[in-house]
Write a protein that binds this DNA or RNA. Structure first.
Length: 477
RNA sequence: GUCCCGUUGGUCUAGUGGUUAGGACUCAGGAUUUUCAUUCCUGCAUCAGGGGUUCAACUCCCCUACGGGAUACCA
């Protein structure tokens, strides 16, 4: 429908996918869906020192689990590949030469020691810490001497020295920066690899990206990028900078204050559906009060224009609540599938599907994260342990009479179904004159190990007749 | 320090030049349930402050405060 709209998610593979990055990916994806454009994945792996083994593979897996399938990217090669920046160095080299030829960039031979010293001096003089441009005007001879010496160099952008630049951001509208605050950005590192700024601009142009949707931390780099586009004579894409996700103390969401990796949330039993829904609502909202959306619903109502300007705190409490809602409302069989991982981990063998689903069902209304599911299944899979208080309740005269009565009445009946259970409950009250807190708590305690919990018929159904009898016999003194 | 961006209850947010400023989470109380949980109802609490503009400002403008981001041969 709109083939001109092309957006991209361009993570660098330095670890697990961060929830902030998930939201960036999601917004890109949703915008593409909304307008019928293309969603592209590009791997920004230009920093050799930060390379993390397996990070790219994890990224693919996580995106897939989240349902964020890309139209173009690694393994889905469109005509704009390769989609790994580490495989595009030759492309960058060509364009860097063009910049050098045009006088928009220059070789800088300053070592990191020189740079450190320079920054300290500037700071001491109350100046900012920009590069002072001492290599800007080296003569041909000076450059050649350095090269002959085998001196390492970087290539820097020759940023204008005065005036200001104003651009339009979809979220923030008009933004202005004075040029004299912008650093002569390094474009090519001494190892020959491009920096983010260079690679990003070239790739976005070559891949015909129409909208750059990324985190706000990039806003202050926009002037450099725009200067690059201008230097090449290219039309820049539309800019859209997303507000940051925040810790409870309002700083940028970070690992120090809890989990931030999507994978961690998944492992704890937050559903992909929840994560997508929750993260979508951090910084964006449709008109009105609706809070529940599936991924495809979001793709219909999403709009860049409705993205907020201010950062949002990632509130675990609300995430928990929302996950609880999803656990209760998604089809039981689906939840059952998700839950199997945790049963396996706990070493609980699933006896039969019907009882298993009953079990998941009683747990789902009591938990917020799926990793808590086995806690509610535990009484069915291991021997019950009683505290002294429990024993006191189980040992009373009326409790004992109650257990014997139930054993006697269950033992010869062909099956233990809800009808029989309700009848026995009734007769316990009528014939034994045991009722209320002398009736239910002891029974539940004897069978489930806790006075609180699921309904008796449910417990007995899952336990089945044999085990019910065993457990009653266990508490007869 | 400098530059940039932001500010509706504790948190996520809806909203308009004239509203009793709406919803959700949390918290408190209550109802339902044999219990727990679920569910439902009720309540607490907000337009950062100060100046303008205007008949009228939470809404538009300016200043201040506060918060955040950027200030790397990381992205």
């Amino acid at each position: 429908m709109n083939n001109k709209i092309r957006v991209r998610f361009a993570p660098s593979p330095t670890g697990n996918l961060h929830v902030g990055s998930l939201r960036t990916a999601l917004y890109n994806y949703l915008y593409a869906k909304k307008v019928g454009g293309k969603f592209i994945l590009r791997i920004e792996d230009t920093d050799q020192t930060r390379y993390v083994d397996g990070a790219v593979e994890n990224l693919f897996i996580t995106l897939k689990k989240m349902g964020l399938e890309y139209d173009e990217g690694p393994g889905e090669n469109g005509k704009f590949g390769p989609y790994y920046q580490s495989k595009r160095t030759e492309i960058y080299n060509k364009y860097v030469q063009e910049l050098l030829d045009k006088g928009k960039a220059y070789k800088c031979f300053c070592t990191s020691e020189i740079l450190d010293k320079m920054r300290k001096e500037r700071k001491a003089n109350g100046l900012d810490t920009r590069y002072d441009g001492r290599c800007r005007n080296l003569t041909e001879k000076e450059i050649n001497d350095h090269l002959q010496n085998g001196d390492k160099y970087v290539i820097r952008l020759k940023i204008p020295q005065d005036g200001e630049i104003t651009f339009y951001d979809i979220v923030r509208d008009k933004v202005t920066f004075p040029w004299n605050m912008i650093d002569d950005q390094v474009l090519v590192k001494s190892d020959g690899f491009p920096t983010y700024h260079l690679a990003n601009v070239i790739d976005d142009h070559l891949m015909e990206i129409s909208h750059v949707i990324r985190g706000e931390e990039w806003l202050s780099s926009v002037p450099k990028h725009l200067f690059l586009y201008e230097s090449f004579g290219w039309k820049p894409p539309k800019m859209c900078h997303l507000p940051l996700l925040l810790n409870p103390d309002k700083s940028k969401l970070s690992k120090r204050q809890g989990d931030v990796a999507v994978e961690d949330f998944l492992n704890k039993g937050y559903l992909p559906e929840t994560l997508i829904n929750f993260v979508a609502l951090l910084g964006w909202h449709a008109p009105g009060n609706e809070e529940f959306y599936t991924l495809s619903e979001l793709g219909k109502v999403f709009s860049l224009k409705r993205i907020n300007k201010s950062g949002s705190v990632f509130d675990i409490e609300k995430l928990n609540w929302m996950n609880g809602q999803y656990l209760r409302n998604i089809d039981l069989k689906v939840i059952g599938e998700y839950a199997k991982t945790y049963f396996k981990k706990a070493g609980y063998h699933i006896p039969n599907e019907k009882h298993y689903l009953e079990l998941v069902d009683i747990a789902r209304s009591r938990i917020h994260k799926l990793d808590e599911v086995t806690e509610f299944a535990k009484p069915f899979f291991s021997e019950l342990k009683f505290t002294d208080d429990d024993k006191a309740i189980l040992g009373t005269e009326s409790s004992q009479r109650l257990f014997k009565f139930w054993i006697d009445n269950i033992i010869d009946s062909p099956k233990l179904d809800e009808e029989l259970i309700n009848e026995l409950l009734r007769r316990s009250t009528q014939e034994l004159e045991i009722k209320g807190k002398n009736l239910y708590p002891p029974l539940r305690l004897a069978l489930y190990g806790s006075a609180h919990g699921p309904e008796l018929p449910t417990i007995m159904d899952i336990l089945e007749k044999e085990k019910v009898l065993t457990r009653f016999n266990n508490v007869i003194t």
